[in-house]
Design a protein around this nucleic acid. Sequence first.
DNA 1: CGCGAGCTCTTTTTT
DNA 2: AGAGCTCGCG
Length: 761
Amino acid sequence: MSSPDLNPPQAEAALHTHGPLLVFAGAGSGKTRVITYRIANLIARQGVAPYRILAVTFTNRAAKEMRERLGKLLGDSIARDIWAGTFHSTCAKLLRQYGESVGLTRSFVIYDTQDQKSLVTRILKEHYEGDARFAPKQVLAWIGKQKQEAKSPDDCGENTFERGYADVYALYDKQLRACNAVDFDDLILLTSRILSDAKNPDGDRIRNRFEHVLIDEFQDTNAVQYKLMRSLVSKHQNLCVVGDDDQSIYSWRGADVRNIRGFERDFPDAKVVKLEQNYRSTAHIVGAALAVIAPSRTREPKELWTANEAGEPIEVIGLETEREEAALVVSYAKQAREAGVDLRGVAVFYRINAQSRVLEEALRASNIPYQIVGGMKFFDRAEVKDALSYLRVLDNPKSDVDLLRIINTPARGIGDSTVDKFTTYAAFSGQSLTDALSEADAIADLSSGPRKKLAAFGKLLAKLRDEATRLSPSDLLSAVLDETGYRTSLRAENSPEADSRLENLQELFGSLRDFEAEVQAAGEPATLAAFLERVSLVNDVDQMEDAARITLMTVHSAKGLEFNLVLLTGMEEEMFPYRGFDDRDDAQLEEERRLAYVAITRARQRLVITHVQRRQIFGTTRACVPSRFIGNLPHEAVVHRSTSAPRPRYVDQPGYSSYGGATGTRRPSDQPWSHPQGPARPAPPPLAPGERFVDREFFDEGASDFDESPKLRPGSAVFHERFGHGKVSAVGGGAEPVVTAFFPGWGEKKVLIKFLSAGGR
DNA sequence: CGCGAGCTCTTTTTT
DNA sequence: AGAGCTCGCG
């Protein structure tokens, strides 16, 4: 296997067989090739049984691709036996088999974000009526964080405030178990518990099962995942982790880049290999990526390089508005299509999903075939979730969240007050809602009408559950849609919206059919449970179609993918690096920088970067200046174009020193960006309330084409009679001249601009 | 009880 | 800008 297929470090990694191995795999350095060759080597030369190899990937799509490649090297029947999947899907599979000791039966369901929210809302209503301390979203974020750090309710809650959260956490977990349900974080956490419980024989069973463990995208593992991994390999230490600290972009969901940076501390015997030659991109693109990541403070030392030719220069294009930007994307796509380029190789990236709509509209209007990854997911649509809730509650009767979702969908006269009394009864008698349904006649609080309706609903479900034992999953779905009247009620609406819902249900049916065919082809039974699990754990990248269309997605979704032509849009301060409501700290800014690095390194041949002067987003118009990351690009690798004359802009824009080639190659400083207009601007005298805010210095000189209201922008310092000094967080568009501003001591306030004056400090 | 209008609130990135 | 929610009416 020291073949010409692999360069020396690649071969070194691929031929490693025992003990811990850390592979730093630079972008485009042939990582997947190394992983597949290494697994092939373990099987073909070392005689390791394929089913004793676990390969954890970041997406199910990556797992599938790995399997396909291995299929070519070793044959499909061997490749099929390898355990390959994400942390979440692997753990789900293990819990189906070994979940009993942590309180799960085989038919447990996986609650998604929406389900979690409805469960927590119900708990808060029941136990904390009227307590404003708890907002479901915040509580869930906090619980998620604890779970990602492997903390149980008893392990957390240092102060009173957190203690309150910990109590909700305990109730929430109790409810989940009562529902025979888990959330995403539980998949990892519960598996980890099984493994680290010395008294649990299942832990050893799992451990013994895997002789070799491989983890890809290791820089994006969190604390529980790390813990799980350590106990998984504690006996044999046959562990190979592959990653790139420069591509760590998931700290916001608990990923800890220290897992990769500190790997050698926990595994002192680890062999370390660095893959530094990039085979993917042109030299210009590699150079651009390096220049963007270079100012990063904390990096594992490594040198990415390429022997590829320089290629086309990177185009940086300035436009007026997001609509023009979309038109530019269309024109590049058209150009590509007319040149006979395969549209599969073209991608459009953006920082946040909200940017996709304008792009989508423009592409649709121009008949350019495209697909969008992310955003509103198919399986998140209300009608699809309704149908799935029926299936889930048939499979797992204890799932109260699902039962509540469908108890009055379609409307069957069971209103809120009936539901309240019913759930109270169930809680009081300690039953699941499904069980309580069969006693509907005995609920003293209810009058005969609601009792009858509940009982009828219970009979309907019982009938369907009976049919479920005989029908295939797809036939069961048909039965559900018919017998519940769901289809009929949508047809009766006779509206375009209802028609599109019916189409979506048809699509769900189709996808269930596809699933059955696929699973049966692999010689396995197509169970409803397996389908529901797959639906819970697929992401949009997994679902990406391999059709001849261009692809639109966030930079996060693009991780691990590559395209011949990448159009990277919205490269403006505040958008990318993104700044939401709050200022960000250095660590967050570093992550934005790594995100930009990921974006650039997805491109093979051509990279086009666009930025606009003003952008309409979240209902307001923002003035925009080019991103500091544009300022980092090496002069010689870039051509600048603009559809309009350059306009004046803030000269002290941090991290951005040259635009249109004005000042050349000076390395920009990389300061926190919280004050784009620069610190310590002299304060103009406050105006009397009622006077208009017209401080020229605060606004862009070239912005006369804005609209009628004064040109405050996020970050502008303002003064208000009552609230004092503050900072604008958003500018309200439309007729009302209002802005949202943050005032220390008062919080976010929406105020009329006429009551504001320019306020320095 | 169900529906609709108006209101508020949010607005990163996702398994 | 958009979704989701609450409130009031039929």
